[in-house]
């Protein structure tokens, strides 16, 4: 049987975490090819609906990323990201699909390494956990 290959959706903001992912590339940091980045202007644009939908579609993990608190390009829009994330966190916990499948990470444009490490860690962890039980492909 083919080895389980997790699918991970990462939402990145234009100014910090997307640029951080760029820097990981420029610095040739190697990480596994399991992550799909969706760019928005600000992490504040990440509607929790997008995260829920990703899981329902079959994401094994979802990464919500943005500028560090205090560094938001849009003054404090990422505060709202953080507040709304708490809802998602509780929701995922209640659903019982494994809280580690959802992660919020602040990544600045200079933290390419942090981005690469986040992907590596998540892929490793999810490989151990197995496919998300909410994925339509997983029989229960």
């Amino acid at each position: 049987m083919k080895e389980f290959d997790p699918k991970i959706v990462a939402f990145c903001c234009n100014w910090c975490s997307y640029a951080g992912a760029d820097l990981a590339g420029v610095s040739r940091m190697q990480y596994p090819p399991n992550v799909r980045i969706i760019k928005v202007m600000c992490s504040g644009r990440i509607d929790p609906l997008f995260v829920l939908m990703s899981f329902l579609e079959g994401a094994d993990a979802v990464l919500v990323t943005g500028c560090h608190i205090g560094d938001c390009h849009y003054i404090d829009a990422n505060h709202k990201t953080k507040n709304r994330f708490e809802f998602l966190k509780e929701m995922i916990a209640e659903l019982g699909i494994g809280e580690e499948r959802l992660r919020l990470e602040w990544i600045s444009a200079t933290e390419g390494e942090k981005f690469a490490d986040m992907v590596k860690e998540t892929v490793e962890k999810i490989k151990k956990m197995g496919p998300s039980p909410l994925s339509p492909k997983v029989m229960q």
Binding site: D22, G25, R28, P32, P33
Partner: peptide, 17 residues
């Protein structure tokens, strides 16, 4: 973005990339 987010970070994994 298939360079910074793909070819440069999966340099040894042509199939995956």
């Amino acid at each position: 973005n298939i360079r910074e987010h793909c070819s440069w970070v999966h340099m040894k994994d042509t199939e995956g990339a």
